[in-house]
Amino acid sequence: MVIKPAYITTSYFSDGVCVVSIGKDAFDYNKQNGVIDKKGQLIIPFHKRGYFSFKNGRSIAEENGISYYVYKNGKTSLACDINVLLNARNGYNAISGNDVKTALDALSKPENKGCPITDYWLGYIYLQVTPPMKDSVKGAQLIEQAANAGYPEAMYSIGFVYANGLSGVKDEVKAKQWLMKAGKAGVPTAYTLLGTLSEKTDPAEAAKQFQKAADLLEPIAMYNLALLYRDGRGVSKNEGEFNSWLNMSANRQYQPAKDLQARLIKKD
Rank of each mutant, 00 (worst) to 15 (best):
A140L: 13
G65L: 04
A88L: 09
N64Y: 13
I36V: 07
P116K: 05
K109Y: 03
D135W: 03
Y69N: 05
V129K: 10
V137M: 04
Y120M: 03
E63Y: 03
H47Y: 11
G57C: 06
S53I: 12
G50I: 00
P132K: 06
E63N: 04
K113E: 13
V35D: 02
N33H: 15
S96W: 06
K75I: 02
Y12P: 02
K24T: 11
G114C: 11
D135A: 07
M133F: 12
L142W: 01
G50E: 05
L142K: 04
N30D: 14
C18N: 11
I117Y: 06
S53G: 12
F54Y: 06
M133H: 08
P132S: 09
S96H: 08
A61T: 07
K109G: 02
Y126S: 07
F54H: 01
A61C: 15
D15E: 09
A103K: 02
N98P: 06
K72M: 01
V20Q: 14
S96K: 15
N83A: 14
D105R: 00
A79S: 14
Y92Q: 12
Y120W: 01
V17D: 04
K75Y: 00
Y51V: 00
I82K: 12
T130H: 03
I36T: 06
N87E: 10
V19E: 08
H47C: 07
L142H: 00
N93S: 03
F27Y: 12
D28N: 09
C18W: 09
K75L: 04
V100K: 15
S108I: 01
P116H: 07
V19S: 08
P45K: 14
C115D: 08
Y12W: 08
K55I: 00
G23D: 09
A26W: 12
N90H: 11
Y92N: 07
Q41I: 14
D81W: 05
N30A: 15
S59T: 09
S96Q: 15
N93T: 02
G34H: 11
N112G: 07
F13S: 09
E62C: 03
D81G: 12
F13G: 05
P131H: 04
K48M: 10
A61R: 06
K75R: 14
V70H: 00
E111I: 13
K134Y: 06
S77E: 02
L42A: 10
V100Y: 14
Q32K: 15
E62W: 03
K39Y: 10
L86M: 12
S108N: 10
A94M: 05
G74D: 01
F13M: 11
E63D: 02
